[in-house]
Design a protein around this nucleic acid. Structure first.
Length: 303
DNA sequence: ATTACTAGGGCCTCTGACAA
DNA sequence: TTGTCAGAGGCCCTAGTAAT
């Protein structure tokens, strides 16, 4: 991960084995940037759990948020900016080069021609199943209970393989277009992601988002879907649901207030959408989070 | 009384087809 | 490549019910 002022960017090792390293990162930098140029020291994958940031390469910008997996290629240069004041937090997966090449080879047989650059993309989709599995992995790694290393290895590699497969599926299906149009569409979609990430709690229409990136609603819906494989509204809903999952995990107790705060029109709609996304109701997630808290508190009381 | 969940219906968004 | 139209599907709101 990038080197930014140490007091504002902290790392906590969660797990280390010969096949995978998992770290939690927490960035407290407020809105601003782009900052000074940074260089990636190794190949790693980041799955975010909160917030958003933008990676800039020359004139290109890609938005990283909880709906994306972000890929850092060793030696790549970029600058980072933060479109919102909320900071960002996530999980870093570091996989040894030979093992990473083995995983990628199944998706891209030409990887042996460029083993130092296994990622031909910067971001890729993070599907609900992968996001959930990653969240469970972090939860269990953070818990005080002992963990089976085999389970952690398999789960971490599975998450990495899943997001890589999704990224290759998206980027491998690229069609040829005029370079100018291609760049213009990318810019608009990335700008829309940034715009959405800083407005989770607002009631937005397709016209609002399209207007923010200066295009017609119909055309914008089309290019957004083409580039993300997700309709605009579904994308925003996922941002909201993943924010909700984090807040439930950190003790949010009023579901109605949480739903309204995240821009859902009603608690009922929030519950319904949450269950469809994660297969569990918000209250059951909150219950398991509070039981965990109680276990940890009682453990602290033990002498 | 409050909180949480479910069902049903209206409306908005998405998407395929087509034209400019 | 961009914009428009129309049908289909899904989202969101309201109302009702259950649990505490």
């Amino acid at each position: 991960m990038p080197r930014r002022p140490e007091s504002l960017l902290t790392f906590s090792p969660l797990y280390d084995s010969p096949v995978v390293g998992v770290r939690d990162y927490n960035c407290h930098i407020d809105r601003g940037g782009p900052a000074a140029e940074e260089h990636s020291a190794d190949n790693h994958i980041v799955l975010m759990r909160h917030g958003t940031f933008c990676k800039h390469f020359g004139r290109r910008t890609e938005t990283a948020d909880v709906n994306q997996a972000v890929f850092f290629s060793k030696g790549s240069s970029y600058r980072v900016s933060h479109p919102a004041d909320c900071g960002d937090r996530g999980t870093v997966f570091v996989i040894p080069p030979r093992l990473l090449t083995d995983i990628v080879r199944e998706l891209d047989p030409t990887v042996d021609d460029h083993p130092d650059r296994p990622f031909p993309f910067v971001t890729g989709p993070c599907e609900p199943a992968a996001f959930w599995q990653h969240r469970e992995l972090v939860r269990r790694l953070e818990a005080v209970e002992p963990l089976e290393p085999l389970w952690a290895d398999v789960t971490a590699l599975q998450v990495a393989a899943d997001v890589l497969a999704a990224a290759f599926a998206r980027h491998g299906a690229k069609r040829r277009k005029r370079p100018g149009t291609e760049a213009d569409h990318t810019d608009r979609v990335e700008a829309a992601k940034t715009w959405l990430a800083s407005r989770l709690g607002e009631r937005l229409t397709l016209e609002d988002v399209a207007g923010a990136v200066h295009t017609s609603p119909f055309h914008f819906a089309r290019i957004f879907q083409q580039r993300t494989n997700t309709p605009v509204h579904a994308y925003l809903t996922r941002l909201r649901l993943r924010a909700a999952l984090e807040r439930l995990g950190s003790g949010a107790d009023d579901l109605t207030a949480l739903a309204l705060d995240l821009g859902f029109s009603s608690h009922s709609h929030f519950t319904d959408t949450f269950r469809r996304e994660f297969g569990r109701s918000p209250s059951s997630v909150r219950l398991s989070a509070s039981r965990r808290t109680l276990r940890e508190l009682s453990k602290n009381l033990e002498v």
